[in-house]
């Protein structure tokens, strides 16, 4: 217990002192505000008509009420969550190698597995925090801009679905941590995230039947934003998802424990 407390203290201090932490928070808040603004424009198409870009952006919105807004927030967190969690994970693990600080974390009374675990816990919490910043800002901006059709009863199921998607995305950081460790830096995991995003989009568009087998598609399948054409994920999807997380977790621990740190 002492070991994990010490390791968590270290990780919290490093996150607090880094610029990427406030930048990530401001970025998610900004996106939340922009969501509200987008809904506002959807309600007032005369504003959008003056700008071709904004007009294009609002044209894909299913509507301009709170139900459409909730759907939009879930769609956005599915993509933004993968990017956000991927980048902060790449940074947290990759920086130990690019700053060459990892060698000082290896021969200590605190086991290497504890260091890895504390990093993943902090990243999980960080990712949840970013999503909360996003959703709270988006809801406040929606209320301020008077998006019509507010319903307190619709809020709870939305928040449950939203947070479940966030949790799924936040758990999927373990394979990114493994790739950042094995790649000893930022480039490989960030490339991996881009590849995952492209692959997920291709699957949904081109090969929807295979989405059940792809762990990064689970949050979208769970949320139902993919439409009624795709049913909810089955046991196999959850099993593959859990195995992917565990493979990432134990793979990262094993990598820190057994590889040669030259």
């Amino acid at each position: 217990m002492k070991e994990i407390k010490a390791a968590l203290w270290m990780e919290i201090l490093k996150v607090r002192r880094t610029k990427i932490f406030p930048i990530s928070v401001y970025f998610f808040i900004f996106i939340g505000i922009m969501m509200g603004f987008l809904m506002f424009v959807a309600r007032h198409p005369e504003i959008a008509n003056r700008s071709a870009t904004i007009s294009t952006k609002t044209s894909f919105l299913p509507g301009s009420d709170w139900n459409a807004f909730f759907d939009l927030m879930i769609q956005l967190v599915l993509t933004l969550g993968v990017i956000g969690s991927g980048i902060i994970t790449s940074w947290n693990f990759g920086r130990e190698f690019s700053d060459r600080t990892v060698k000082d974390l290896l021969s200590l009374p605190v086991p290497r597995s504890t260091i890895v675990l504390s990093k993943l816990i902090i990243l999980f919490v960080w990712n949840i925090l970013l999503s909360i910043c996003f959703v709270v800002t988006a809801i406040i901006s929606g209320l301020l801009l008077q998006v019509p059709g507010w319903s307190g009863t619709a809020l709870t199921p939305f928040l449950v679905t939203f947070m479940m998607c966030v949790i799924f995305n936040s758990l999927l950081i373990t394979p990114v941590a493994l790739i950042a460790s094995a790649g000893r830096g930022y480039m490989l995991p960030i490339s991996f995230i881009i590849l995952i995003l492209i692959f997920t989009q291709l699957l949904f568009v081109g090969l929807p039947d295979l989405t059940f087998w792809f762990p990064w598609a689970l949050p979208a399948l769970f949320s139902g934003v993919a439409g009624e054409a795709l049913p909810s994920p089955g046991y196999i999807s959850y099993l593959i998802f859990i195995l992917t997380i565990l493979a990432g977790l134990f793979g990262t621990i094993a990598w820190w424990r057994y590889t040669d740190h030259r």
Binding site: K2, E3, A6, A7, W9, M10, L13, K14, R17, T18, K19, D99, R100, T101, K103, D104, L105, L108, P109, V110
Partner: peptide
């Protein structure tokens, strides 16, 4: 001490040492 020592650049000298005080329990 292995090769060139690298510390966490955004942390102070005190904080860098405090980390290792805690990690060494």
């Amino acid at each position: 001490l292995v090769e060139i020592p690298y510390s966490y650049p955004e942390l102070t000298v005190l904080e860098n040492l405090e980390i290792f005080r805690r990690l060494r329990l």
